[in-house]
Design a protein around this nucleic acid. Structure first.
Lengths: 265, 265
DNA sequence: CAGTGGTCTAGACCACTGG
DNA sequence: CAGTGGTCTAGACCACTGC
C-alpha cells in the first residue's frame, strides 16, 4: 500500500514526500492527478479485480489523506477513460469486457438495418492458433524484438450464417502463455473477456487503421467471396495500462450487409 | 436574457420557476445541466460568436445566481463536447473550425508515413455545385421532405498532386441560400469554416458509416483509377446544435497512401 | 498588477441502492 | 435504514495571461 501522505507539492511543510510514487513521474502535478496515478497502480496491480467495487470515495479520501472532492475528480477522469464505472448508490466498479453491455466495446461493425445495436454473439470459427516468431512489423506493433515468441490466431466470424469477418491476431508470447485453440473455442464470451479472466490482461484502449483492399486467394476462400469483392481492412493495436501494446489484430470486414460506424466529436 | 433566478428544483421555496426555459425540457435535472442548457442557448442564438470569449465563470455565476462551481461543471461538459475551449488565464472561447488547430477536426484520413498530423491543406477542385431537389435518401438524412431544395456539391481533393478524395455533399437549401461554386473556390480555409462565417452554421458533431466499395466509371475517371481499385466509402452526417442534421457527405477515399485513423476508448 | 481558469477543501444535502 | 455516488456551495489559494 503506497503513500498515505499528502504526496507532492506540499506547500505548507515543503516536504517533497514522494515515497511510493514510481520514479520518473514528473515531480509536479495536481493532487488529483497523483491520486489518479495511485488508483491506476492499484487497478494495474490487480489489487481490485474487474467487475468488483473499488473502495468508496470517502475511504480513498482518508487513505490518501485528501478531500473527497479530490478523489472524486481523479475517479471522474478514470470513468471518462472507461477504466472504472460509477453506479450511484452502489459504488465504483472496475470496468470489464465480460459484461453484456460492454462486450463488443471495440467492434464498430454493425448491421446495415438495425441501428444502435449489434446482433448478438457471432458464430466464431478458429482456423488456426499457433506459436510463432514475430516478424518485423508485428514486433514493432507489439513493442517486441523481431523473432520474439508470439501467438498467432486466425478466425472467421459469421453473422446469420454468412462469413463476415476474417481476423488474424498476434499476441505477445509471455503474457499469453498457455493460450490454445481449445481454450478459445471453449470460452463462452468475447475474446477480451477471456484475456481478462484467464490471463489478467485488460485491454483499455485501441487504435485502428482502416483501408479498402481486395482479398487474396486464401482470404477469398475463407470468406466465400470473389476476387473483386472490396473489403474493409482494419488493423487494430490494443493497449493495456501504461500504453503497453498487447494485441495486433488485422481484420477483413465484408461490408455488404454491415458497415463500420464511427462517431466524430 | 433568460431566467436570472435559481431556476428549477428550488426546494426551499418550492417555486417551480421555469420562466425562460424552453418548453419540453424535462422538469427535473441538476442545476448545472440547466446552466449548461442556458449557455447552449446563448451559443446557438449567436449571442457569443465563434472564436470569441464567453463571459467569465464568475460573471456567469452571478448572472445565473449560482456558485462558480456549478457554472464550472456546466462548462466542463461543454468543453468535453468540443463546443467551447478553455484557456487558462485568458478565458473560455467558442469553438470554431476556422483555426489551424481544429481545421480538419472531422477528417480522419492521414498519410501512411507521417503519424499524428495531416499534410496541410489539400488542393481542392470543385466539380459541380448546383441547386436540386432532395431525393428520398438525402431527405431522410437531412430531416427534410423529398423534393425539398438542397444544394449539391461535388469536389475532388488532391494530396501531393494525387486525387485522393471524391466527395459529394448535400446541404439544406434554406440555411445555405446563396452558396455558389465561386464562393467555395474563393474561400481560403476549410469548408466548415466557411459555413460558420458565411452562413452561421456550426458543425458540432458527426456520424460516419464506412464501407469498402469499387468505383463506377464516372468516379474512376475523376480519381484516375482502374475498375478494381478498392475505395473507402465514407458517408457522413454532420449536425449543428440540437442534433439538427445540416450536411450529408458521401466521400470516396483512396487508401493507397493514406488510411482512416480511429481511436477506440 | 488584475483577471482568468485550475485546484483543493469542508461541509451540507440529495438520489439511489440494498438489506 | 446506512452507505454510496451526485450536486451545490463558499471560500482560499495557485498558475497562467496580458497589460
Amino acid at each position: 500500500m503506497p503513500a498515505n501522505i499528502p504526496l507532492l507539492n506540499d506547500s505548507a511543510t515543503g516536504a517533497t514526500a514522494d515515497q511510493g510514487l514510481p520514479a520518473g513521474t514528473p515531480a509536479f502535478s495536481p493532487l488529483y492527478q497523483q491520486i489518479k496515478a495511485l488508483i491506476l497502480q492499484s487497478l494495474q496491480s490487480g489489487e481490485w479485480k474487474p467487475s468488483t467495487a473499488i473502495p468508496s470515495e470517502q475511504e480513498l479520501a482518508t487513505r490518501y489523506r485528501v478531500s473527497q472532492g479530490t478523489v472524486r475528480k481523479a475517479i471522474d477522469e478514470l470513468a471518462a477513460e472507461n477504466l472504472v464505472v460509477r453506479r450511484q448508490g452502489k459504488g465504483t466498479f472496475v470496468a470489464t469486457h465480460a459484461e453484456r453491455h460492454t462486450q463488443y466495446r471495440f467492434l464498430r461493425l454493425v448491421p446495415e438495418g438495425g441501428e444502435h445495436t449489434h446482433e448478438g454473439p457471432a458464430a466464431r470459427r478458429i482456423i488456426d492458433c499457433k506459436r510463432t516468431r514475430a516478424a518485423a512489423d508485428v514486433a514493432r506493433a507489439l513493442s517486441l524484438r523481431a523473432g520474439d515468441a508470439v501467438l498467432q490466431v486466425r478466425r472467421v466470424l459469421s453473422f446469420a450464417g454468412i462469413p463476415t469477418i476474417l481476423e488474424d491476431l498476434w499476441l505477445p508470447g509471455g503474457p499469453f502463455k498457455g493460450l490454445t485453440a481449445e481454450r478459445l473455442n471453449n470460452y463462452d464470451g468475447a475474446m477480451y473477456a477471456l484475456f481478462e479472466t484467464e490471463f489478467g490482461v485488460r485491454m483499455v484502449r485501441a487504435e485502428e487503421k482502416i483501408k479498402a483492399v481486395l482479398p487474396d486467394p486464401e482470404q477469398r476462400e475463407l470468406l466465400h467471396i470473389g476476387a473483386y469483392a472490396p473489403l474493409l481492412s482494419v488493423e487494430r493495436i490494443a493497449y493495456t495500462y501504461n500504453d503497453l501494446p498487447m494485441e495486433l489484430r488485422r481484420g477483413l470486414y465484408l461490408t455488404d450487409t454491415h458497415y463500420y460506424r464511427n462517431a466524430l466529436n
